[in-house]
């Protein structure tokens, strides 16, 4: 799959004209496909979709065998790209302690036929990348991946190679299994839009999984794929068309302020997290059928948005509780403000 001949990803073709309904339909189409493959994970699927269309990355904190590969694979396979066939829709990398940065970014190889070096692409050149056990590898590799996530480019031998605009990382880590790991520092966790903590699926869904195991899974025809262009077009449209009131900005800044001044918090959230929050809130508003962000969106997303970005003082409450507490006041102020001019 490493295609050393292919040039760096070209600039995108203009996405077909979309309206917000079309964008929403695109999201719903992806959602329908993933839901067909992953049962009982609607809440996680929604957050993943919000991250995908909000141009962020997600960190899943869960245990083995909980369906995250299935989820990421279903996501990758929902997106087609006839124009850039050289980019894989889905890649999975198992992070191990002996991994090297070039194993994920790509490497320069010497071609004896042409007596020249060619760049052989790593797995980051894909639409959806599943990084398993991100905390098992060395900080060097983690840093290389995080640069790719933040900049959407990799640099090998002083040559920068752009990644695809769609590039979307689903990373996982097991919070209980800490032996031989390199926990991600807060600064690196900050690159992830969401950290999603998964719970076991409910009984009915688990039974459904068992019942359908082994049976041939045919996907109905009414679950078509979406194109890469549609996804990127939807992203741009949502960013432009979903209204974010200045009051919402104030609310976000206030929440950050409360978090930073909270005595239980050693280090508060970054400005980058607020910047990342805006598109996420826009996607969530659209998923709720609105073209404007409301307090409900903020309430829905604050915990996965901010929870992993806090450094807590020792012995303090769980970050979830701190975030929830911090959001209450600004959210109430925002709700109250709608009754005044």
């Amino acid at each position: 799959m490493f295609d050393d001949q292919a040039p760096p990803a070209p600039p995108l073709a203009k996405a077909p004209a979309l309206d917000l309904d079309g964008a929403r339909r695109t999201i719903e189409r992806v959602r329908a496909r993933i839901r067909h493959d992953v049962m009982g994970r609607d809440d996680v699927i929604e957050l993943v979709l919000v991250a995908l269309f909000g141009d962020g990355h997600v960190l899943l904190e869960d245990y083995p065998g909980s369906g995250k590969t299935t989820l990421a694979k279903a996501l990758g396979e929902s997106i087609t790209d006839a124009v850039h066939a050289d980019i894989a829709p889905f890649r999975r990398v198992q992070f191990t302690p002996d991994l090297l940065p070039s194993d994920i970014t790509g490497v320069m190889v010497f071609d004896t036929t042409t007596n020249d070096f060619h760049f052989r692409r790593g797995p980051v050149f894909s639409h959806v990348l599943l990084v398993d056990e991100i905390n098992r590898t060395s900080p060097k590799v983690q840093a290389a991946l995080l640069e790719a996530m933040a900049e959407k480019q990799v640099t090998v031998d002083n040559v920068s190679h752009r990644l695809d605009d769609l590039f979307f990382v689903v990373a996982t880590q097991n919070p209980l299994d800490s032996v031989g790991t390199y926990p991600l520092p807060v600064a690196q966790l900050d690159r992830f839009l969401f950290k999603i903590r998964m719970e076991h699926v409910d009984r009915a869904s688990e039974l459904e999984v068992l019942a359908s195991w082994g049976a041939p899974r045919s996907r109905p025809d009414d679950l078509p794929k979406v194109t890469r262009g549609a996804v990127i077009g939807a992203r741009d449209l949502i960013r432009r068309a979903v209204h974010v009131s200045p009051k919402v900005h104030e609310c976000l800044v206030d929440i950050a302020g409360v978090l930073r001044s909270d005595k239980r918090v050693a280090q508060g959230v970054s400005t980058r997290s607020l910047v990342q929050a805006i598109p996420a809130l826009q996607v969530r508003a659209l998923l709720d059928g609105r073209d404007f962000v409301t307090p409900a969106d903020i309430e829905h997303l604050t915990v996965p948005l901010f929870r992993h970005r806090l450094a807590m003082v020792p012995g303090a409450d769980a970050p979830e509780r701190v975030v929830r507490d911090a959001a209450k006041g600004p959210l109430d102020t925002l709700s109250r403000s709608t009754l005044s001019r």
Binding site: E46, I196, R197, H300, V303, P304, A318, E320, R324
Partner: peptide
């Protein structure tokens, strides 16, 4: 959403 959060007080 699946955060393991105690119900609000």
């Amino acid at each position: 959403m699946t955060e393991r959060v105690a119900p609000p007080i």
